[in-house]
Amino acid sequence: MRADLAMGELTVSLRALRAVAADFPALPAPSVHVSPIFPNRLELALHDDLRAFEPWRIALGIACEDVRLGTQSGGRTWVLEAGTEFAGASVWLTAFSAVSKSGGSGA
């Protein structure tokens, strides 16, 4: 992170956030993260329901083969993730859901 980073240097990711909000107002609201560490990246995170990932994937134009499925927390949490370029920013989409006791995806 640069100590001299100004708020204006986050405009690429903030414009992408504005475009996402304007273009996809009916999609499930994600957690949003913008950071001075990666000023041109917009991170969208969906929690507790993997089903919310698919409409976002389609809206952002992410190909199915670009999605990675994994687990974390010792196999207790499913993770779907993919990245793309949108409105000039690098957009990273992630969804998390607890692995059910029956081994399902929570979707």
Rank of each mutant, 00 (worst) to 15 (best):
T84S: 14
W56Q: 01
F53T: 02
H47R: 14
E43N: 07
V79N: 01
G75H: 01
A45P: 00
I62C: 13
R41Q: 15
L46V: 04
L46E: 05
F38A: 12
A95D: 06
L42P: 02
E85W: 02
N40Y: 03
G61W: 08
G75R: 01
L93V: 05
L46Y: 12
E81A: 15
L46M: 10
A45Y: 00
E43L: 07
S100D: 12
S73F: 11
R41N: 10
A87T: 07
A98R: 14
T84G: 12
A87Y: 01
G88E: 02
S105C: 12
L44P: 02
A87E: 09
S100P: 00
F53G: 05
R41H: 11
G83S: 15
G88P: 05
L93M: 11
W78Q: 02
R57C: 01
E43G: 08
T94N: 09
I37S: 14
A98L: 13
A98E: 14
G104S: 14
G61V: 05
S73M: 08
C64I: 10
G88L: 04
G83M: 11
T84K: 09
G83Q: 15
F53W: 04
F38V: 07
S73Y: 11
D49L: 06
P36E: 11
F53R: 11
A95C: 12
W92M: 14
G74C: 03
T94I: 14
Q72E: 15
R76V: 00
R51L: 05
D49T: 03
E85H: 11
G75I: 01
D49A: 14
G88Q: 03
A107S: 09
P55R: 03
C64S: 15
E85I: 11
E81W: 10
P55Q: 07
L80S: 07
P39H: 08
L93D: 10
A45W: 00
P55G: 09
D66E: 11
L80F: 12
Q72F: 00
E54D: 15
P55K: 03
G88V: 00
L93I: 05
S102P: 03
L42Y: 08
N40V: 08
D66N: 15
V91F: 01
T84W: 05
S97P: 00
T84E: 10
L60C: 05
A82K: 07
A87V: 07
T71K: 15
L80C: 06
E65A: 04
P55D: 07
R76N: 09
G70H: 09
V99M: 06
A82G: 11
R41W: 06
V79C: 01
D66T: 07
D48T: 09
P55V: 02
S90M: 10
I58M: 10
P39L: 05
R68A: 14
